[in-house]
């Protein structure tokens, strides 16, 4: 398999391990873009999803926004943003956030909406305020699903953040774009492998957060 050969060649090349184009630098850049995009998307998607899920209203609006956002092509948005506002971090964040908001918004809404109504009724009946019902009764139960939405968004961001390199920013996409123009497949495959690796790390991270944050009573083990 020459793909494996590429991987081996890429990672054994000492030049790939330091400097501004070294793996650690590019990896951290990629993590920074991804984390920032995820944070912005979560700051938009979570509150709206929690609120609409709790009240059970606005489901149609959520579905509409999510479907519309999903229909927007990330690469196209990037090019358009660059043409309209120039190079920088902002034009990269726009497509990444647009990509990540629908999974976060929709799963959070569905997760909270589908919480068993009986405990919510009981909580209300014992005099809990609505905010407390949302955060102390609904969210703990909805958490696994909410996390799965965030995880899905995070994986898509990690994979798509490679486009940052297309507008002269760093990140693991650098290897892929540079490799494409230099006809250096070793770089392309190496970059792709690193992205997949980061996706795995992300999965592991979410798994760990799930273990720590989700009550054993909800996990049922």
């Amino acid at each position: 398999m020459n793909v494996l050969n590429f991987v081996q060649a890429f990672f054994s090349d000492g030049a790939h391990w330091h400097g501004y184009d070294g793996i650690p630098t590019r990896f951290l850049e990629h993590v920074r873009y991804a984390a920032l995009a995820l944070a912005i998307a979560a700051a938009i998607g979570l509150p709206v999803g929690l609120l609409t899920g709790h009240t059970g209203r606005g489901g149609n609006a959520i579905a509409f926004v999510a479907n519309a956002a999903r229909a927007l092509p990330s690469f196209g948005l990037l090019v358009l943003a660059v043409l309209l506002i120039g190079f920088g971090l902002l034009p990269v964040m726009i497509p990444l956030v647009v990509l990540a908001v629908p999974p976060i918004l929709v799963t959070t809404y569905e997760a909270v909406r589908t919480v068993d109504p009986a405990p919510v009724d009981a909580a209300r009946g014992m005099g809990m305020r609505e905010s407390r019902i949302l955060f102390r009764v609904e969210v703990p139960v909805a958490l696994p699903l909410i996390l799965s939405g965030l995880r899905s968004a995070a994986i898509q961001i990690v994979s798509t953040a490679t486009i940052a390199a297309y507008v002269s920013l760093g990140g693991l996409g650098r290897y892929i774009i540079d490799g494409l123009y230099q006809r250096n497949y070793e770089k392309v495959v190496g970059g792709a492998t690193l992205v997949a690796l980061l996706a795995l790390v992300t999965l592991a991270l979410f798994w760990a957060v799930g273990r720590l944050a989700v009550s054993p009573g909800v996990r049922r083990r």
């Binding site: 009986a118 009946g125 009550s215 009573g217 909800v218």
Partner: peptide
């Protein structure tokens, strides 16, 4: 006040409605 009123009354429903994330 509605919360004061409710806290002064016990409320039991079908299927108990327990909080599954709490002991």
């Amino acid at each position: 006040p509605v919360t004061t009123l409710r806290r002064s009354m016990g409320y039991v429903i079908q299927n108990a409605g327990l909080f599954q994330h709490r002991t």
